[in-house]
Amino acid sequence: MADQSSHDDKAYWAANVRIIIISLVIWAVVSFGFGILLRPALSGIAVGGTDLGFWFAQQGSIIVFLALIFFYAWRMNKLDKEYGVDD
């Protein structure tokens, strides 16, 4: 029984790490990507007197960050229940 639960804990952790990696890829793409490194590539897309990269750097990335945290909190609550590890 103890082995079973520690095996489940490992699977739970692996699932958690997978969700984190996906979330952090999006996190990096909107901020470091669209906001900084890829801004020249997005310069053709006009947003209110400037370009999409500027919008992501000053506004868009913050909105995506918010969505990411609440997605993660929701997804992990589900995962906690699936594995029966919620506190």
């Binding site: 979330s23 996190w27 901020s31 906001g35 990335s61 913050i62 990411l68």
Partner: peptide, 9 residues
């Protein structure tokens, strides 16, 4: 702006 909010993620 990005730094002081992105850290919360």
């Amino acid at each position: 702006l990005m730094g002081w909010t992105g850290g919360y993620v």
